[in-house]
Amino acid sequence: MTPAINVLNQSGSVYELHQFHPTGGAHSYGREAARQLAVEAQRLFKTLLVRLESGAFVVALVPVSGQLDLKKLAQIIGERKACLAEFTDVPRITGYLPGASAHWV
């Protein structure tokens, strides 16, 4: 289970878990998830871990139908540069496994 699901379980929250099974050949995991779950891509969010030039990390939630503008994110935060974190950083920083997980609202 993910840390978020563990929190939901501990709080007694009522929720429904929606799973999809990536084929591995898709260009976009998010769009594949939206298709399999029959959810509009703008309602499904990808969670991106971003490393700033200072070495700090931030999390960005972006609709599957969009793309993150790393330059604009860095500018908003007051940094010069930002890049997506390495896959190996994701579990160390967040406790999550990188890859095909998606959230929808």
Rank of each mutant, 00 (worst) to 15 (best):
V90T: 14
K46G: 06
R51M: 07
V14E: 12
Q67S: 15
H27W: 09
V90D: 11
F87W: 01
T23R: 12
A100W: 13
K72Y: 11
F20Q: 04
A26P: 12
I93Y: 00
G66R: 09
P91V: 09
G78W: 05
Y15V: 02
I76Y: 02
P22L: 00
W104C: 10
T23L: 12
G78T: 06
Y96W: 05
S65W: 09
Q36N: 10
A60S: 14
A33L: 03
L97N: 13
L84E: 11
R43V: 02
V59F: 07
N6K: 15
V14G: 00
Q67W: 01
G55E: 04
N9A: 00
H18L: 13
P22K: 04
A26L: 07
A102S: 15
A74F: 07
L48D: 11
Y15S: 02
L52E: 01
P3V: 03
T2P: 05
E32V: 10
A38I: 04
S54M: 09
L73G: 10
Q75L: 10
T47C: 07
A85M: 04
P63S: 12
P98H: 07
M1T: 10
S11C: 06
E40Y: 08
P3F: 01
G30Y: 02
V105S: 14
H18Y: 12
G66W: 00
E40L: 03
Q75Y: 03
R35F: 11
Y15N: 04
M1C: 07
E16A: 10
A102N: 07
C83A: 09
D69E: 12
R80F: 03
A102F: 02
G55Y: 02
R35G: 11
T88D: 12
S101Y: 09
L17D: 12
S54Y: 13
F57K: 06
N9F: 00
H103P: 00
A34D: 12
S65N: 05
L73V: 10
R31H: 14
L73E: 13
E53Y: 02
G78C: 06
P22H: 01
V14T: 13
R51V: 07
S28I: 08
A102Q: 08
L70H: 01
T47S: 14
V59P: 09
S54A: 06
I76H: 07
A74K: 14
Q42I: 10
G30N: 04
N9Y: 00
V7F: 08
V62S: 14
S13K: 08
V105I: 15
E86M: 04
G78N: 07
A4W: 03
K71C: 04
Q10Y: 01
E79L: 07
H27A: 14
L52D: 01
G55H: 02
G12L: 03
G95W: 01
G24N: 08
S65H: 05
H103A: 05
W104H: 15
L61K: 07
M1L: 05
L8S: 01
L49E: 14
Y96A: 04
K72I: 04
N6H: 11
R31K: 13
V62N: 10
L73Q: 11
Y15D: 04
G12C: 06
S65I: 08
Y96T: 05
L61R: 06
F20P: 06
A26K: 05
T88V: 09
S101L: 05
Q67E: 14
